Measured scan of single mutants.
Amino acid sequence: STAGKIFRAMYDYMAADADEVSFKDGDAIINVQAIDEGWMYGTVQRTGRTGMLPANYVEAI
């Protein structure tokens, strides 16, 4: 389960779609929910934006 875990971005990511979020390497991602194998839903702490993000760009900390 991803509940209550904080994730950290390992790479920069530029949102490719309106429902995705952009983030930079080192950003903390909070309130994360796993959607499926490849995608998560969460909030980028630095920007306050919430949306979909690729699971392979982040790691649990």
Rank of each mutant, 00 (worst) to 15 (best):
residue 1 S to C: 06
residue 1 S to W: 11
residue 1 S to K: 13
residue 3 A to C: 09
residue 3 A to G: 13
residue 3 A to W: 07
residue 3 A to S: 14
residue 3 A to K: 11
residue 3 A to H: 14
residue 3 A to F: 12
residue 4 G to L: 07
residue 4 G to E: 10
residue 4 G to A: 07
residue 5 K to N: 15
residue 5 K to V: 14
residue 5 K to M: 15
residue 5 K to C: 11
residue 5 K to S: 09
residue 5 K to F: 13
residue 5 K to Q: 12
residue 6 I to F: 11
residue 6 I to L: 11
residue 6 I to K: 10
residue 6 I to R: 10
residue 6 I to P: 04
residue 6 I to N: 08
residue 6 I to H: 12
residue 6 I to M: 14
residue 6 I to T: 15
residue 7 F to L: 06
residue 7 F to S: 08
residue 7 F to K: 08
residue 7 F to R: 07
residue 7 F to G: 04
residue 7 F to H: 04
residue 9 A to R: 00
residue 9 A to L: 00
residue 9 A to N: 08
residue 9 A to M: 00
residue 9 A to T: 05
residue 9 A to V: 02
residue 9 A to K: 08
residue 9 A to C: 08
residue 10 M to V: 09
residue 10 M to H: 05
residue 10 M to C: 04
residue 10 M to W: 03
residue 10 M to A: 03
residue 11 Y to T: 13
residue 11 Y to G: 14
residue 11 Y to E: 07
residue 12 D to S: 14
residue 12 D to V: 00
residue 12 D to R: 01
residue 12 D to M: 01
residue 12 D to L: 00
residue 12 D to W: 00
residue 12 D to N: 09
residue 12 D to G: 04
residue 13 Y to R: 05
residue 13 Y to D: 10
residue 13 Y to V: 01
residue 13 Y to K: 04
residue 13 Y to Q: 05
residue 13 Y to A: 01
residue 13 Y to G: 05
residue 13 Y to P: 05
residue 13 Y to S: 03
residue 14 M to H: 12
residue 14 M to Y: 13
residue 14 M to N: 15
residue 14 M to K: 12
residue 14 M to A: 14
residue 14 M to W: 10
residue 15 A to L: 00
residue 15 A to E: 01
residue 15 A to R: 04
residue 15 A to F: 03
residue 15 A to W: 07
residue 15 A to I: 00
residue 16 A to N: 06
residue 16 A to H: 10
residue 16 A to S: 13
residue 16 A to F: 10
residue 16 A to W: 05
residue 16 A to Q: 12
residue 17 D to R: 12
residue 17 D to A: 07
residue 17 D to G: 14
residue 17 D to E: 08
residue 18 A to S: 14
residue 18 A to G: 13
residue 18 A to N: 12
residue 18 A to D: 15
residue 19 D to W: 06
residue 19 D to N: 10
residue 19 D to M: 07
residue 19 D to P: 01
residue 19 D to G: 13
residue 19 D to T: 13
residue 20 E to M: 01
residue 20 E to C: 08
residue 20 E to K: 11
residue 20 E to R: 01
residue 20 E to L: 00
residue 21 V to P: 05
residue 21 V to Q: 04
residue 21 V to C: 03
residue 21 V to R: 02
residue 21 V to W: 00
residue 21 V to L: 06
residue 22 S to R: 03
residue 22 S to E: 02
residue 22 S to Y: 12
residue 22 S to L: 01
residue 22 S to H: 03
residue 22 S to Q: 00
residue 23 F to V: 06
residue 23 F to E: 03
residue 23 F to C: 06
residue 23 F to A: 04
residue 24 K to P: 03
residue 24 K to N: 11
residue 24 K to C: 15
residue 24 K to G: 02
residue 24 K to S: 10
residue 24 K to L: 11
residue 25 D to S: 15
residue 25 D to R: 15
residue 25 D to F: 07
residue 25 D to E: 15
residue 25 D to K: 15
residue 25 D to N: 14
residue 25 D to P: 10
residue 25 D to Q: 15
residue 26 G to L: 04
residue 26 G to E: 01
residue 26 G to D: 05
residue 26 G to S: 01
residue 27 D to N: 03
residue 27 D to A: 02
residue 27 D to C: 02
residue 27 D to S: 02
residue 28 A to G: 04
residue 28 A to S: 11
residue 28 A to I: 15
residue 28 A to T: 15
residue 28 A to Y: 09
residue 28 A to W: 12
residue 29 I to C: 01
residue 29 I to A: 03
residue 29 I to E: 01
residue 30 I to E: 04
residue 30 I to R: 04
residue 30 I to T: 11
residue 30 I to K: 06
residue 30 I to P: 05
residue 30 I to C: 08
residue 31 N to P: 06
residue 31 N to S: 10
residue 31 N to K: 06
residue 31 N to Q: 09
residue 32 V to P: 05
residue 32 V to L: 04
residue 32 V to Q: 04
residue 32 V to G: 05
residue 32 V to S: 07
residue 33 Q to K: 15
residue 33 Q to M: 09
residue 33 Q to C: 07
residue 33 Q to E: 13
residue 33 Q to P: 01
residue 34 A to T: 14
residue 34 A to W: 11
residue 34 A to I: 15
residue 34 A to L: 11
residue 34 A to Y: 14
residue 35 I to R: 12
residue 35 I to T: 09
residue 35 I to S: 07
residue 35 I to K: 11
residue 35 I to N: 04
residue 35 I to F: 09
residue 35 I to C: 12
residue 36 D to Q: 10
residue 36 D to G: 12
residue 36 D to V: 06
residue 36 D to T: 13
residue 36 D to P: 06
residue 36 D to Y: 07
residue 36 D to L: 07
residue 36 D to H: 10
residue 37 E to P: 12
residue 37 E to G: 08
residue 37 E to D: 09
residue 37 E to M: 07
residue 38 G to W: 09
residue 38 G to P: 06
residue 38 G to V: 13
residue 38 G to I: 12
residue 38 G to Q: 15
residue 38 G to N: 15
residue 39 W to V: 07
residue 39 W to I: 03
residue 39 W to A: 05
residue 39 W to G: 07
residue 39 W to P: 05
residue 39 W to T: 13
residue 39 W to M: 08
residue 40 M to P: 01
residue 40 M to Q: 03
residue 40 M to Y: 10
residue 40 M to V: 12
residue 40 M to N: 04
residue 40 M to T: 07
residue 41 Y to E: 09
residue 41 Y to H: 11
residue 41 Y to P: 05
residue 41 Y to I: 11
residue 42 G to H: 00
residue 42 G to Y: 06
residue 42 G to C: 03
residue 42 G to E: 02
residue 42 G to K: 03
residue 42 G to R: 01
residue 43 T to H: 03
residue 43 T to P: 00
residue 43 T to K: 06
residue 43 T to R: 04
residue 43 T to C: 08
residue 43 T to Q: 07
residue 44 V to C: 04
residue 44 V to I: 10
residue 44 V to L: 03
residue 44 V to F: 03
residue 44 V to Y: 00
residue 44 V to E: 05
residue 45 Q to L: 06
residue 45 Q to T: 07
residue 45 Q to C: 12
residue 45 Q to S: 09
residue 45 Q to E: 14
residue 45 Q to R: 11
residue 46 R to P: 03
residue 46 R to L: 02
residue 46 R to I: 02
residue 46 R to W: 03
residue 46 R to G: 03
residue 46 R to D: 01
residue 46 R to C: 01
residue 47 T to G: 02
residue 47 T to Q: 03
residue 47 T to H: 00
residue 47 T to L: 02
residue 48 G to S: 02
residue 48 G to P: 00
residue 48 G to A: 08
residue 48 G to W: 03
residue 48 G to T: 02
residue 49 R to A: 14
residue 49 R to T: 11
residue 49 R to E: 15
residue 49 R to L: 14
residue 49 R to C: 10
residue 49 R to W: 02
residue 49 R to V: 09
residue 49 R to M: 15
residue 49 R to Q: 15
residue 50 T to S: 15
residue 50 T to I: 05
residue 50 T to E: 10
residue 50 T to F: 03
residue 50 T to C: 07
residue 51 G to H: 11
residue 52 M to G: 03
residue 52 M to W: 11
residue 52 M to K: 15
residue 53 L to A: 08
residue 53 L to V: 15
residue 53 L to D: 01
residue 53 L to R: 01
residue 53 L to P: 06
residue 53 L to I: 15
residue 53 L to M: 11
residue 54 P to G: 03
residue 54 P to C: 01
residue 55 A to F: 02
residue 55 A to L: 07
residue 55 A to W: 01
residue 55 A to D: 03
residue 55 A to E: 06
residue 55 A to G: 06
residue 55 A to M: 04
residue 55 A to R: 11
residue 56 N to I: 03
residue 56 N to A: 14
residue 56 N to Q: 10
residue 56 N to M: 09
residue 56 N to V: 05
residue 56 N to P: 08
residue 56 N to R: 14
residue 57 Y to T: 09
residue 57 Y to V: 05
residue 57 Y to S: 10
residue 57 Y to L: 13
residue 58 V to M: 08
residue 58 V to R: 02
residue 59 E to D: 01
residue 59 E to F: 00
residue 59 E to V: 07
residue 59 E to Q: 09
residue 60 A to Y: 06
residue 60 A to V: 13
residue 60 A to Q: 12
residue 60 A to E: 15
residue 60 A to P: 15
residue 60 A to R: 09
residue 61 I to G: 12
residue 61 I to R: 11
residue 61 I to V: 15
residue 61 I to S: 12
residue 61 I to D: 12
residue 61 I to A: 13
residue 61 I to C: 08
